[in-house]
Design a protein around this nucleic acid. Structure first.
Lengths: 112, 112
DNA sequence: TTCCTTTATCGTAATATTGCAATATAGTTT
DNA sequence: AAACTATATTGCAATATTACGATAAAGGAA
């Protein structure tokens, strides 16, 4: 009897892993929180906010941009960063789905 | 004029980074989704579900356990894993807060 | 006891991440 | 043009992650 090989991970699993991974560092959480607070700001402001070198901050910004969590608009000399709401929405919905399902189970168990 | 050194990251930022990081790999997303689906299961079931070696799955389970996302109960020979709802709840609330704040901003901008 | 099953851990290799200083790039100002 | 500002990239070291096979540990079955 042949046991079917399990499928590799789904595109969805990869997608949410990528989004979550971008949140997986305190510096990037701090950047996201700051951007939410100020709505929009230039890169230099973020560098001033964090206890990290400019090059390191730039790397974290790149990671967030590649995950689709932030967007950067070039404005002359500077770059104006802001949150990409769509990705946050997506991750939020995923977390909600996951969290609500465990809630359902908990209720079901209690009603037994 | 002395510019104050920015504070290191907050405990909250570390906490959510740790939780998010645990979600930051498709295998771990798959494990979480499977555990939600079946509610509870022994470790071997998870190994069968994933295209990964037993030792690798064990590592991922350890990571999830250390992040507080799953719990493992020893039952004789086997270990019964399940989701720790509290941590999911926490991460969900965080994402909701973050996501709703960008929503607010969007509305505020539109009303200008 | 001996064998089997289940899970964790160890050792190791490959790769990725994090952080920084130094440098490059590109726009701005003078 | 030269000097300055803002950001990205490069090079590099330290560390972490991912994956696997081999092995250990601990319980159950024969």
């Amino acid at each position: 009897m042949i046991i079917p090989k399990p499928r590799p991970f789904t595109a969805e699993q990869h997608e949410f892993a990528k989004l979550a991974k971008a949140f997986g560092h305190p510096a990037r959480i701090a950047i996201i929180e700051y951007l939410i607070e100020v709505n929009t700001c230039i890169c230099g402001d973020i560098v001033d906010q964090l206890p990290l070198a400019q090059s390191t901050v730039s790397q974290h910004l790149k990671a967030l941009k590649e995950a689709g969590i932030i967007k950067g608009n070039i404005e002359g000399n500077t770059i104006c960063y802001c949150i990409d709401e769509k990705s946050l929405e997506k991750l939020n919905k995923f977390m909600q789905r996951v969290s609500s399902k465990t809630e359902d189970k908990k209720i079901a168990v209690n009603q037994k």
